[in-house]
Amino acid sequence: MGSGKEKTAKLPEGGRSSSEGIPSGTQSQFRKGLAKLLRNKMAVFGGILILGYMVTAIFAPILYPGNPSAPNLMRSLERPSWEHPLGTDELGRSILGRIIYGSRVSLMISLGVVSVGLLIGVPLGLISGYYGGKVDFILQRITDMLLAFPGFLLALALVAILGVGINNTVISIGISMVPIYIRLVRGCVLSVREQVYVEAAIAVGTPDLRIIRRHILPNVMVPIIVQTSLGMGTAILFAAGLGFLGIGVQPPTPEWGAMLGSGRGYIFNSPHVATFPGLAIFLAVLGFNLLGDGLRDALDPRSKI
């Protein structure tokens, strides 16, 4: 019954109605994936969380009209009230306002981090997997070395070299993600490279670069997308970790990790100062991880959820 319905529903667009735009084949594949994703309640929950954060980040000035960094020492460490729904910190700044503006910082950092990871890691992984041989060997040994450090430790070491600040935070966490992308992409390329259609592409005389771009990269996109979603969560966590230690984004910029770090001293008297930024970090990371897991299940052609 269900399948019959689907068939009739698909027919009109299966024909040649759409001459431009996405051809019917991908559309139905894409829809299948989307439907699978929407059926996964946890993934939807994660998606809603992230969407919430994105809306918050974009409309921060509307949601909190004041300056989140302006101190007001007369009102420091206030409990949640009507005026300051999440209370104020030791300098009397609204914690809600700082969390709202902090979402901008955190999302920017995580976007920057995965961009660095993608831009460096994906090309290197493609080259390593496609060409093999000596290039592969050297790249993989370097990757081994980088992967031998726990990611956070590597980011920490890089901050120690580069210095504190938002740009260096992005660069160091980004570099700590590069080896993960290299490994992931290389592994996928190795399996795609053995496909007959790649051999066929070689046999029609397609240049290497074109084979990589047209035949290999699109076929390894799914794990890259999943890794990127999971990586955004990790990036937020790492950035917060660096902020907490005082070597990430510097005050007075509102950053969740730094807020958590400064609130730590008041945990017994004014627990709200540390609790709410911690909750913000927790929900953001949870959102990205749930969405990433959902994407993995939805885009995996073998899973039949």
Binding site: Q195, V196, Y197, E199, A203, V204, G205, T206, H215
Partner: peptide, 17 residues
Amino acid sequence: RGGAISMIFQEPMTSLN
């Protein structure tokens, strides 16, 4: 390759991207 000499492979199911 693909110009003067071209090739047809054994497995039509996997030889197209």
